[in-house]
Design a protein around this nucleic acid. Structure first.
Lengths: 152, 152
DNA sequence: GCGAAATTGAATTTCAATTTCAATTATTAA
DNA sequence: TTAATAATTGAAATTGAAATTCAATTTCGC
């Protein structure tokens, strides 16, 4: 929390930008949730909590947070841009449940190694990658079982 | 070519839909390109070639082709929906060049195996996945070298 | 305090995706 | 063949999220 704020302040300073109450608030609320929210969802969350900050400001601040390395854009199947924490939150992939929408963050160094080997084979210089596995999570599988889903 | 057309005809028949000249044309042009085109790009291609088919029809036909298992939606970084061939074109991942936009289609059974193992660990039932590696392709790396790109 | 620069947020614009709807075309039943 | 029925088309309109505009406001440096 504190650390992210420091990074943000430093980032803003370098760019001759200002840490405003709105930006501070948006960062706080953003950091407090571990979900992957869209601009609109974060905007609604902030409005509910108390503050009255415009959607444009939320939008712009999230972009700033990305530029500062604190947030990161992701898309999880639906066609909306979502934002996740980046700082202190190293690279990972997602197992996305197509029933409940929840996701599991995973890393597998062996997969990453094979990916790099694959790139090498094509003399392709990898910069970043995105792996999403869509399926049914443990919890939803249990529900299907209980309900005797004939398709499962 | 012929095969895809047969599949499409059969698909349409089952759904009580019709094979119109427009749909036939769209399928032909779609199959002739190996790129991953957006609706608009395919629409422009068709217009250039000769025909005068509306964008709505291209859009709807591509959706039909997806439903028929002939086409498949993909997104490659930019935020547009693109369509690739699906029939006779088994699952694969993409190495996407961030310089020239070209992509390489790849498969690595070992990666897939590790993915399945990973899912098992979380009791997650995988249905499909999407792996995209963004980086610089061989050709573009050569260009950077030639130009003495100090950042490369 | 003053002026320059940055910020805000409501409203607007953008842009691709999608839908509407009236006109057209094809199919079916009589 | 014709009339009724159903599907198709495409121009135009709509949608919805992303991004921008701009006048009003706030903040900063002096």
């Amino acid at each position: 929390m504190r650390e992210e704020e420091d990074i943000f302040v430093e980032f803003l300073r370098k760019k001759n930008l200002r840490l405003t109450p709105q930006r501070e608030k948006i960062l706080q609320v953003f950091l407090k949730t571990n979900q992957h929210l869209t601009v609109e969802e974060l905007y609604n969350l902030i409005k509910k909590r108390n503050s009255d900050i415009g959607q444009a400001t939320v939008f712009r601040t999230l972009k700033l947070l990305c530029a500062a390395g604190i947030a990161k854009e992701v898309e999880l199947g639906d066609k909306k841009i979502r934002f996740e924490h980046k700082y202190g939150h190293p690279h990972h992939d997602h197992l996305v449940c197509i029933e409940c929408g929840r996701f599991i963050e995973v890393v597998d160094v062996n997969i990453e190694k094979l990916q790099n080997a694959l790139c090498e084979k094509f003399e392709f210089l990898p910069k970043r990658h995105k792996l999403e596995i869509f399926g049914v999570c443990k919890k939803c599988r249990a529900i299907s079982d209980r309900e005797g889903n004939v398709f499962a």
